[in-house]
Amino acid sequence: MKVGVVRFPGSNCDQDCVVALSQFPGMSAEILWHKEDTVAGFDAIILPGGFSYGDYLRCGVSARFSPVMGAVKDFAAAGGPVLGVCNGFQILCESGLLPGALVRNRDLRFICEHTHLRVERTDTPFTRAASSGQILRIPIAHGEGCYFADNDTLRDLREHGQVLLRYSDERGYLSQETNPNGSRDNIAGICNRERNVFGLMPHPERACDPLLGSTDGRVIFQSLLS
């Protein structure tokens, strides 16, 4: 499996993704410069974290004008798996590939810490190697990660099983205390209705090596492979 990791000006987790993905036998990863206008030859696309275009105006908004995004949209429309991490999640929302938006954290602070995530659905290419209700320990690092969607959109997400990860405690209980950024419904990650586009604020690529304190992020990439 060949994964393209898009590098926008200001991406800073692109190389981390390549390193994390390269651990998996059968998986290779390559950087894809944002000026590319094709993603031909790739089996999956990752939009990594960072501060694309300096996060000017709004996080993730400028990336929609990158040539590569047209190709990513076509790739997604054809059913190709697209994963957006952190700034990549913001880009997916701003580009209309996922519903909702990411706004300033409830407490206005940039948060960099490990979180516990409850796996809500395993019927996607990104979570199928996990078990339902499994708790993953994966770090977040963001200032604008509070997921917002209006009530109708939230109901829609729930009805179609599009919420894949929620912030919980280590036993899987949900509360405002386990919600680091004020996201509605403790949402940490959602997919589109077709289930091939997934965005999440936590960084699975930072949880793939025991040296970094957790290897729970592996299950996301393992899912892509299986």
Binding site: V103, R104, R106, L108, C146
Partner: peptide, 13 residues
């Protein structure tokens, strides 16, 4: 402006 339904922590602060 943020929509009235959106949490505006900056406004609160």
């Amino acid at each position: 402006m943020p929509k009235p339904s959106v949490l505006d922590p900056q406004g609160v602060a």
